[in-house]
Each structure stands twice: as structure tokens, then as C-alpha cells.
């Protein structure tokens, strides 16, 4: 695969890769760095990409693994979630803040970020990126049933933002 082909076939996945990295890592800057790292990894194995059936699933699996490595290495997930949960608690106390779409997006993003990693990955890939279950299975290595269970839990937790008093 040459550089031109790489740009056409692989680089177009950049936004999906960046969003998954964002929901896993929690901020734009780190997501951008991770996205760049993913593409450099993909470029280094460019000759192997010729035989990849589903480039999107392949690239997103690399993204997820890379982000999980970063989270593990920095051991920051707990710290981040504590901060997010605190912020969500403040928001839930004040339902008027949730009327604006900007606030709504912000609250939902924070709620997604507060989910356990598996639920976070599954809801990002399904509800935001619109991937089929078999693709999510390829990316996460989970079976379809486990994906549905995690998806259901994640959706209910997000819904709780709007139903809990």
C-alpha cells in the first residue's frame, strides 16, 4: 500500500478513530495524539493492510488497545472518573442546566466517560458510530450477547440522567 492509497483507504477513518480515543481517554489533546499514533502504527504495517477484510474494525481495534494501554500505563481512570462523577452530581442537582443542547451534550459525554471501559467502548461504537454487533465483536473480542448486555447497562445509566430526581 502506497501513501496515496493509505490516504484514501485508511485516513478517512480518522474521525471515528479520534472519537473512540476521545471517549476512552477523556480529552481532545490525548485523543489526537492517540489517533496519530494509531495511523503511524497502521503505516508501519501497511503491507499487511492489503489482506485486512474490515479496515474500520481493524483500525478501531488498534485504537482501543492503544487507549487501554495508555489508561493502564497512567493509571488515571479512577482519578478521572471521580472528577466526572463529582461533576455529574452537581449537574443532576440542577436540572435547568440540562435544557440547552450544549449542556446536554456535555452531560452525556461526561456520563459516557464515567462508564466502565467496556460499556464506554460499546456505547461509543454502537450509539455514536453506528457499528453493527459483529464489527463491535471484532473490535472488542466480546461475543454478541456480552455486547448487548453491556450496551443495555450503558444506555440505562445514561437514561438515568434524565429520569432520576
Amino acid at each position: 500500500m502506497d501513501l496515496k492509497q493509505f490516504e484514501i483507504e485508511v485516513l478517512l477513518l480518522k474521525d471515528k478513530i479520534a472519537r473512540l480515543a476521545f471517549y476512552l481517554l477523556g480529552n481532545n489533546e490525548e485523543a489526537e495524539d492517540a489517533t496519530q499514533e494509531v495511523f503511524l502504527k497502521l503505516w508501519h504495517i501497511k503491507d499487511e493492510l492489503e489482506v485486512v477484510d474490515n479496515m474500520q474494525a481493524f483500525a478501531l481495534r488498534i485504537t482501543r488497545n492503544l487507549c487501554l494501554d495508555k489508561i493502564r500505563a497512567q493509571n488515571r481512570r479512577l482519578q478521572k472518573n471521580e472528577a466526572i462523577e463529582e461533576s455529574l452530581k452537581e449537574r443532576a442537582d440542577n436540572p435547568h442546566e440540562q435544557t440547552e443542547i450544549r449542556d446536554l451534550l456535555s452531560v452525556i459525554k461526561k456520563q459516557i466517560a464515567a462508564l466502565p471501559e467496556t460499556q464506554r467502548t460499546v456505547i461509543t461504537l454502537r450509539d455514536i458510530e453506528g457499528l453493527e454487533f459483529d464489527e463491535i465483536a471484532e473490535i472488542t473480542g466480546m461475543n454478541e450477547n456480552a455486547i448487548k448486555v453491556n450496551l443495555s447497562r450503558a444506555r440505562k445509566k445514561i437514561r438515568s440522567l434524565f429520569t432520576e430526581k
Binding site: 476521545f22 481532545n28 451534550l105 459525554k109
Partner: peptide, 20 residues
């Protein structure tokens, strides 16, 4: 039960640009 807000938000989030 908040479904409309969730789904509306997902549609917008799917268009968001993270990269510079």
C-alpha cells in the same frame, strides 16, 4: 423517558470533530 434527548445527542456527537 429521556430517549429523545439521548438519541438527539448521539446524532450530534456522531458529527463532532475531535481533531485539529
Amino acid at each position: 423517558a429521556g430517549v429523545s434527548k439521548m438519541l438527539t445527542a448521539y446524532t450530534t456527537l456522531a458529527q463532532e470533530k475531535v481533531l485539529s
